[in-house]
Computed example of a mutant assay.
Amino acid sequence: MSRSGIAVADESLKAFNDLKLGKKYKFVLYALNDAKTEIIVKETSKDESYDTFLEKLPENDCLYAVYDFEYEISGTEGKRSKIIFFTWAPDTAPVRSKMVYASSKDALRRALNGVSSDIQGTDFSEVAYETVLEKVSRGAGSH
């Protein structure tokens, strides 16, 4: 339970584990249910295109997402993959929606073990591929 009293649905954890362990999905979108009592799976996708993911982010509403982000590191390291947690709260979303999503984020975020980066997006420039790539690869050489 979060401070806002919102619970994380079992299916939300299952979808995350299917992405993380089973590699079943490329990304999972999460939303609050209509009653605003639970965080549920809005959609799952196997689509490899990052653009497809971006197209799913609503222009005027909030959501959470988990994305299995693959990228190449120059040199000998080759392909890496990191699970990224997105909080999408565009400036154009209703204030009430932004408040509820902000206050219930911790419940979902704490439940998802194995996320390596958090991205907060208020407009599309903040979730652009290059922006995310820079953020995840910045810490890549230091492990």
Rank of each mutant, 00 (worst) to 15 (best):
V115M: 07
K24M: 08
I6C: 12
L57E: 06
T37H: 04
E43N: 13
E72D: 12
E38W: 03
S117K: 06
I40Q: 03
N60G: 13
A89W: 05
Y71L: 02
D91I: 02
S49Q: 09
R109K: 15
P58G: 11
R80W: 00
E77L: 10
V132G: 08
Y129I: 01
K135T: 12
G139Y: 04
A65S: 05
V127C: 15
S81R: 01
V8L: 11
E72Q: 12
F86R: 08
K105W: 02
F86L: 15
G121S: 11
R80D: 02
T44K: 07
M1F: 08
T87W: 08
S103R: 06
A102Y: 07
E11H: 05
V136L: 01
D10Y: 08
S142E: 14
T131S: 13
F16M: 09
K26F: 08
I83N: 01
H143S: 14
K24L: 09
G139A: 12
I73L: 06
S125H: 10
L13D: 04
G141V: 04
A128I: 04
V8H: 08
E43W: 03
E11I: 09
L57H: 02
A15V: 03
S116Q: 08
A102R: 05
K105D: 01
K26D: 14
A7H: 13
E55P: 01
A107F: 13
Y25T: 02
G78K: 07
L21I: 05
K56T: 07
T76V: 07
V100D: 08
R109L: 15
V28N: 07
V8F: 08
I119D: 03
G75D: 03
K24N: 12
L112D: 11
E126P: 09
V115P: 03
L63T: 11
E126Q: 15
V136N: 00
V41A: 04
E43M: 11
K20H: 13
Y101K: 09
A15G: 05
A31D: 14
L112K: 10
S45E: 11
